[in-house]
Write a protein that binds this DNA or RNA. Structure first.
Lengths: 231, 231
DNA sequence: GCTGATAAGTGTATAAATAACACTTTGGTC
DNA sequence: GACCAAAGTGTTATTTATACACTTATCAGC
């Protein structure tokens, strides 16, 4: 070790860890990777890595996401910073954590690559993870559940175009409730945030559902004039 | 400099900064301290300091609060972590920020001491601050405004006992709205979160108002059974 | 091309919450 | 005891939320 990185007082290493949520057919899922090194070698963990000197934590999280899972341009937001001195058995390591929401298309990307061993786990079936990562997942779930009702972030988990039933199932999965179909549609359409597309499902073996898309422009306009999203 | 704190890769210094809100007669206030050293010597800044190796960030924030302002046992919550590499002109310094809510009694404590030069500023009259601290204050205000409607944290800004008018004025100040007195009282009393005390204001030169206190026990019970606070 | 299976799509009536609004009462001062 | 200032108090109209069941479209199999 050379004398380059010496300081007057001890300093923590800085990492980012990312809780990536996806919405598959049967519920909300979180992406875990298998650790290739000690400590916790071969244990499941959140994708993460060290922050470089010339980048901020968010850039670092995005870089790590791309390197480890091949995902980019995903919705990402700072979650919490974990600073407990003994959270890493090696030394003082502080982690700025993020939570990310990806849709099915982004979710496909990773299955093609083989950058690290990664797997989706239903949020109810997350195994014992390395470090304090179970805590981080717990915090991310709380945040997602709290936020999904007051901000239109649920759309980040669906494809560009989606059916109202998919949207409803998403809310039911995240919130853990059952929602009345007619009331849900009345409410969500009444907000004026969805664009009805001239396109329907195909080859579904039943009546085909119409596709909708989230109208970001309309949402911006509405929020500017005091509108508050709420499900 | 000895060789004690040398690392393989560069590491950031870790600090905490704290946005402390108080509610004075005429609105919401934030506590600022004057910097005694370069950089930004004699400029206003948020109270903050370096995190020690054997403490977590929250303990550090509480320690700094006590050292710099004499406050303890205040409501404190992690806000956001600022990691922009050039946010400090000296070197790479990452700050885990907190927001704190103090009531009048805690607010008095500091005026007695003279630990650092500290002053309350109305949130609409915050001067140009050191580093990226104006950003931090902005973020804290957003958080407070977003949170005060869905969690009973407003009470942290009032004394143990308070009148309904004080509570209403607090919400009006934080949210920047005007609230109807009768509807406000109906709603807040209807929640069953306030204990009416057998005590009134004294020597006020008008009809004395009854004191109330926030019933934490009742709140815990209610949240456990699915109640959601909302103003 | 008819039948059956499956989920899409749709309206109304009741209950609850919110919003608007003004006067009487009380404690203290002069 | 007259006056000042803010405390305290109900009702109605409007909006929003909730509960609830049948018809329609698409595809598959015959």
């Amino acid at each position: 070790m050379d004398r380059k990185n010496c300081y007057e007082y001890p300093r923590p290493a800085l990492t980012t860890d990312c809780v990536i949520f996806g919405f598959g057919g049967n519920g909300l899922k979180v992406l875990l990777v298998e650790r290739e090194k000690e400590p916790f070698k071969n244990k499941w963990a959140l994708p993460g890595g060290f922050v470089h000197e010339n980048e901020n934590a968010e850039e670092s999280a995005e870089r790590v996401l791309l390197e480890k899972t091949g995902m980019k341009n995903v919705f990402i937001e700072q979650l919490y910073t974990f600073t407990q001195p003994d959270r890493d058995p090696r030394e003082w390591i502080v982690s700025v954590t993020y939570f990310a929401l990806v849709n099915n298309r982004q979710l496909q990307l990773i299955t093609g690559r083989d950058i690290v061993k990664a797997e989706w786990f239903g949020v109810g079936h997350v195994p014992r993870l390395a470090f304090d990562h179970n805590n981080i997942v717990k915090k991310a779930l709380e945040r997602l559940r709290g936020k999904v009702r007051y901000q239109p972030i649920g759309f980040e988990l669906l494809d560009e175009k989606f059916t109202l039933t998919q949207l409803q199932q998403l809310y039911e999965a995240v919130l853990g409730t059952v929602i009345d179909k007619r009331n849900f549609r009345k409410k969500i359409l009444g907000m004026g945030l969805l664009k009805a597309l001239n396109e329907k499902e195909k080859n579904v073996g039943r009546r085909a559902a119409r596709y909708f898309s989230f109208d970001r422009k309309a949402y911006k306009k509405l929020t500017a004039s005091g509108f508050n999203f709420e499900i």
